[in-house]
Nucleic acid binder design. Structure first.
Lengths: 336, 336
DNA sequence: GTGAAAGCGCTAACAA
DNA sequence: TTGTTAGCGCTTTCAC
């Protein structure tokens, strides 16, 4: 591979100084129309691309955004990342992707690595820690509130209205005739699920239904398998139930499978709701009623706010809560 | 945020020159045991991290790998990316992620952007073009063969044995009693599906079954929706069928839904197989028999080869084909 | 075993 | 409107 061209060669070919070429590239004014055209032509001819390392060194800022995500194979996170990456690339930014696998230590290492690389901003889809050392770098906390949100000193937060989502799902189960509703959740590392649970409780209270502790299941992890296990326990237990409100689609799918393994059908015997409305929800067994989050909207907002902060403007609001809706499918259609 | 410390400050605090600090950091020898310890201690105390832009400029090489992927929301690609990112981070590399959305133009832009950023290597999960301009940068072509593979001049290729996968799936359908097997595929942009189709044909020939053109469906895209439409056409058509071999899980799920929409059940009326064995396959309706790819193995191999190439060693082989297996679930268990 | 110094490609302050 | 120049933080050659 021949050595990449430098701004110096472009300057020579165009018969100007490197400063002028730099000005043209960065549109910093102080050049004539003719000079601009000539420089641009040479750049195009030579297929010149500025060396980002040099630029980064000189300006201490890069065209790179770090995205920290618990696990990219989670369909909901994958969708967020896809949207973010496409939006940001349109604005000239590349994305460094970091999976934390829910490990605080790994998350810490990634943060250090990102700052060493002079990333221009960070999107933190995670809820493990609060990063004071990030002050200075624009950061958007997305989707998952930090555990220590109140201590957050900088950056903005965007999340879905999880509480209302939990409420909507539960109301739908009640509407469909459920009176003994079990809840499937995994509160570990995820305040969102706590909020969804609160919405669940609010709906019950509103309908004069009592929450039954025996129907309140906490799983070890968010997985199909753990949900199946939990549902098997429910079925084996003494408390009767006619509906399951699950705080994620993955666990809802596990619930459907678990029920079937125990001779119960959805929606024949039990109704089920999920959360996230990902591909899984539409594809699974009976078609899963699920709370829909506006992922493109969240991503767009995150991109906008991050770009604003990069340009030095502090967004007027520091907290954004986006509305959710309910996508109704067969899993909550009681059969006649 | 206080300004990041530089190697100069570390050198001062340790009472040595910057050259020595650099040598210690990069383990380039030429320093005493005592010096090393002192320098290390200061570095730890100060939480010093070398400036990657400066390092990149000086050496024209970074600790960044570019990953180009058609669409991160595809569960199979998401799994590959997760594994790659985790492996590479362990070796000190960060990953720039680039979604092409199957657009050749976007792919081109990403390639240019990656080279401008001096990425150390590239993993190309795509099959759109052949990149001669990449010669010089180590590149692993992963999962999707390039259309113009024969012209590939450098880099290594890793893919699953897709042909055998198609063969295994088809044999399983035949074993379960199918005699008129439809195939659901989308050859656009993806030579893998072509290979799976070839395996399908080989299995038919081996069993003395004739391929029926009326049962050979090509969809516009790899999506649940397009698969549903295709299956609706199949059902409405004149040719009878008792099995569907689908070249991806996503389309297989679409097939199951499409069949149900037309009053046919899996596995009661029609048997179905998928490909990729992603979460969807285990979760969907009846449980989908699917061809399993060794994603962690592929990712590990890709990482190893890329690191080798980065270190200047050309791997002995330039093409790797990994074995696949069949995960059998209910969708191919004919009911009595 | 260690240090001095050049220079990677770029930007920005200053000069003209 | 344009050019000259210093220097960002680091590695590496050369000298000791």
């Amino acid at each position: 591979m021949e050595k990449a061209k430098s701004i110096k060669e472009i300057a020579q070919l165009a018969g100007v100084s490197t400063a002028t070429v730099s000005r043209v590239i960065n549109q910093n004014g102080r050049f004539s129309k003719e000079t601009e055209e000539r420089v641009r032509r040479i750049i195009r001819q030579q297929g010149y691309m500025p060396n980002m390392s040099a630029k980064g060194l000189r300006t201490s800022r890069t065209q790179v955004i770090g995205i920290i995500v618990p696990d990219i194979t989670n369909p909901h996170f994958a969708e967020l990342v896809l949207n973010l990456e496409m939006n940001l690339f349109q604005h000239g930014y590349s994305c460094l992707i970091c999976n934390t696998n829910e490990s605080e230590e790994l998350e810490k290492k990634h943060i250090r690595s990102l700052t060493a690389q002079n990333v221009r901003g960070i999107v933190l889809i995670s809820g493990l820690r609060n990063y004071i050392e990030l002050s200075g770098t624009p950061v958007v906390y997305l989707d998952r509130p930090s555990h220590s949100r109140k201590e957050r000193t900088s950056g903005v937060m965007i999340e879905s209205d999880n509480e209302t989502g939990g409420y909507l799902a539960t109301k739908e189960l009640i509407r469909a005739g459920c009176r003994q509703i079990a809840i499937l959740k995994c509160l570990k590392n995820d305040d969102n699920q706590q909020a969804r649970y609160k919405g669940f409780q609010r709906a019950l209270v509103e309908e004069d239904l009592r929450e039954n502790e025996l129907l309140c299941m906490d799983t070890a992890a968010v997985s199909v398998k753990d949900a199946r296990v939990a549902v098997a326990q429910l079925v084996a237990g003494t408390a009767h139930f006619d509906g399951i409100m699950s705080t994620t689609d993955t666990m809802a799918v596990g619930a459907v499978i678990g029920l079937r393994e125990n001779g119960l059908e959805v929606p024949g015997d039990v109704l089920v709701t999920g959360f996230d409305d990902c591909q899984l929800a539409a594809a699974c067994g009976p078609g899963l009623t699920s709370v829909h989050q506006d992922v493109p909207g969240m991503s767009r907002l995150a991109t906008e706010l991050l770009l604003q902060m990069i340009e030095g403007k502090q967004p007027e609001k520091t907290y954004y809560r986006l509305p959710v809706s309910l996508t109704v499918r067969r899993s909550t259609q009681r059969e006649k």
